[in-house]
Design a protein around this nucleic acid. Structure first.
Lengths: 194, 194
DNA sequence: GTTAGCATGTAAGGAGTTACATGATTTT
DNA sequence: AAAATCATGTAACTCCTTACATGCTAAC
């Protein structure tokens, strides 16, 4: 009964609108260009989400200042309200499973430049432990296996392990970079918008 | 109204039970060991799926021949019926989007040794085109982008592209291997069970 | 003039998760 | 004797997709 649409899509929408006002159709294209490698949203989820956000006062329709008014059913351009910005900050501050699970990590990462350095670090580390747990679980299960596995199963395991290991190494680099940046007294990386 | 649970889980269950009869709890562990890098199933989906399969006559309870009968609520070991084997073959023969999308590809691949060589090839090629479409879409969208992207967004794009490109290369190798095997007049790889 | 793409929306349903409820069995 | 883990199951809920319905506008 929270509101209808999920937090991942909500974050994606609020985050995108924070950069620039957009209408639904283009918003979806942006999102799918930004996150296309990880997930894709359909109109059937986007429009209801926009409605919900509008009803909750987190976004508002922007008056088209002498542009794109052609008549009939035109674009509805949405922009973030003050409450929407607050809500966005709130979502971006949450460093928990809801930030580092498969479905959500990409979206959270995509808006890292609006996220505090501390939170960024905790999310990256959280994701890394999540993946390492998974590696452990599969590796120990594999070690306990009595029967010989066929070549396809083995290949799938090998490829899966390798992919996850690669992501762990990627995270290691990102974490190291974050640490270096936060210890460095020079220029700040805590890119503040506004 | 098809039956309740989805085809992916159904395939995973039928495929596992084809190797050896199992009870729900262990079935889940097997599945999550086999597919743990790609997805994980919970009991809340597994048990209803088993009930549905039982009701449809695709699996049956195995009589515990003088073993593991302790009293009260014991293990319920399921085995594949003749209809279940047919259904499994049916599912394994379907080479369409339902076989090469993200959620299903891993499961289909995991049981490739029960799949005909021709179907294997079409699934691998289908997955490859799917990923290439995705690459194209994201790359052209990226090329059309006017604004400069921040470093996190760029890093996400770079990592995403690289991961997908890696999977495409992996698929290329697998496809080449399949082709070589099918042209080779020597020993067959069309591993028939039974 | 018709296909393709832009633009918005809804209803129904699919596929699974979470949280709960229950109890046996093994390990510490 | 407490804690962990084995074992089965259900109800409510989440989140998203598919398919549909509608109409405008640009390109060919």
């Amino acid at each position: 009964m929270a509101s209808g649409q999920g937090r991942v899509l909500e974050l994606a929408v609020l985050g995108s609108l924070h950069e620039t006002p957009l209408h639904g159709y283009e918003l979806r294209k942006r999102l799918n260009a930004l996150l296309g490698m990880f997930r894709a949203f359909s109109y059937g989820s986007l429009y209801p989400c926009l409605r919900s956000l509008l009803a909750r006062g987190l976004i508002a329709e922007e008056q088209p200042a002498s542009t794109t008014i052609v008549g009939g059913r035109s674009k509805i351009v949405y922009k973030l309200t003050a409450e929407g910005k607050e809500r966005l900050q709130d979502l971006l501050t949450q460093a928990g499973p809801s930030a580092w699970e498969d479905e959500s990590f990409g979206v959270h990462f995509a808006f890292f430049r609006h996220t505090e350095a501390e939170v960024r670090l905790r999310i990256l580390e959280g994701r890394r432990s999540r993946l390492e747990e998974r590696l452990d679980a599969v590796r120990t299960a594999l070690a306990r296996t009595r029967e010989r596995l066929d070549s396809y199963t083995l290949e799938l395991q090998r490829h899966g392990l390798e992919s996850v290991e690669r992501e762990v190494r990627w995270l290691n680099e990102l974490i190291a970079t974050e640490r270096r940046a936060s210890e460095e007294p020079g220029r700040d990386t805590t890119s503040t918008d506004e």
